[in-house]
């Protein structure tokens, strides 16, 4: 390997630095995502989803809640792009407005898991010893329950509503975040710059927030992205069971549930909301996987 001679370091040095400024991490990750086709598909799906949510009033052809009993169970046609449901509501418009709800669910539920998970995982990993034991055993208990079952139990306690479904899904997601943050903190805190922070008199809170957590962002971002997909799926499941969004909210899971009686005669009533859920979860999973690969420094060429 060629040795690069150090520039003569008096005040005049530094000229030699500017030439090789490396690309920032996020930009490099961006390049790698664009290069990977599957991740790119994920990005496109997510962008379309967000655009749909923002432009819902423009895209929708009908009001999502306007009933038209005479025209119930209409097959897809030029008037109703994806047909109508059991109350004659336009399925396309309901799905379009449903993206708003799904994004809301995803973001809020993940924010809840993220905030509590990072806090618990950070504290457990940083302080270690008995604090770690107590926090992680608590997390283990949470993980022992199947996630949907725990979400159902939580909603049963809180009362069925979209808001409570989001809270339940958020709580169910905590263990994943706590574990990932803990493991990241465990490896970061062994770095010498953490000891350096200690030696200049930094307090624990400062070391954790200023030095440890900022170096753990990559795995947290990946988990958050993947978590949005899971949260949307879980919330749809709750709504399907009647524990989440209440009628007439155009929530995809609730739409599935309402239309399931007609699955033989009017399959479009359940097919399209199901497809929407599938696409969105797929999009977030592809993007999340792509991000994980892109942010992994071991793959650096």
């Amino acid at each position: 390997m060629a040795r690069t001679p150090e520039p003569v370091t008096n005040t005049a040095s530094g000229e030699s630095i500017k030439a090789s400024k490396p690309i920032p991490l996020w930009l490099e990750a961006g390049f790698r995502i664009i290069k990977s086709k599957t991740a790119l598909i994920g990005v496109i799906i997510i962008v379309l989803l967000v655009l749909t949510a923002i432009l819902a009033p423009v895209i929708a052809t009908h009001s999502p809640t306007a009933q038209d009993i005479v025209n119930r169970y209409q097959a897809p046609s030029s008037d109703h792009l994806l047909g109508t449901d059991e109350l004659g509501r336009d399925i396309f418009s309901r799905i379009v407005y449903g993206t708003r709800i799904s994004i809301q669910i995803g973001v809020i539920a993940v924010s809840i898991s993220l905030a509590i998970g990072v806090l618990l995982g950070g504290i457990a990993g940083y302080y270690g010893r008995w604090i770690d034991q107590i926090v992680m055993r608590f997390i283990d208990i949470m993980m022992a329950f199947p996630s949907i079952l725990m979400a159902i139990a939580l909603v049963a306690v809180l009362g069925p509503s979209l808001q409570n479904a989001m809270i339940a899904v958020g709580i169910v997601g905590i263990p994943q975040f706590a574990r990932i943050v803990r493991s990241a903190v465990l490896s970061i805190k062994e770095n010498e710059y953490i000891e350096a922070a200690k030696s200049i008199g930094a307090k624990h809170g400062r070391i954790l927030i200023q030095h440890v957590l900022p170096n753990c962002v990559a795995p947290i971002i990946v988990q958050a992205t993947l978590g949005v997909g899971t949260a949307i799926l879980d919330a749809a499941g709750l709504s399907f069971l009647g524990l989440g969004a209440q009628p007439p909210t155009p929530e995809w899971g609730a739409m599935l549930s309402d239309g399931r009686a007609a699955i033989q005669n009017a399959p479009w009533v359940v097919a399209f909301p199901g497809l929407a859920i599938f696409l969105v979860v797929l999009g977030f999973n592809l993007f999340g996987d792509g991000l994980r690969d892109a942010l992994d420094p071991r793959l650096k060429q």
Binding site: N191, E192, Y193, E195, A196, A197, S199, I200, G201, A202, K203, R206, Q210, H211, P214, N215
Partner: peptide
């Protein structure tokens, strides 16, 4: 404040997410 350490590995002992200004002024801030 009175006893300090200079580390062996200059690659591991500086937080990669902090600027030089932040690194050097941190002890003064503390």
């Amino acid at each position: 404040q009175e006893m300090q350490l200079i580390f062996q590995d200059p690659y591991a002992s500086l937080n990669p997410r902090k600027t030089i200004e932040q690194i050097i002024t941190e002890p003064m801030k503390i």
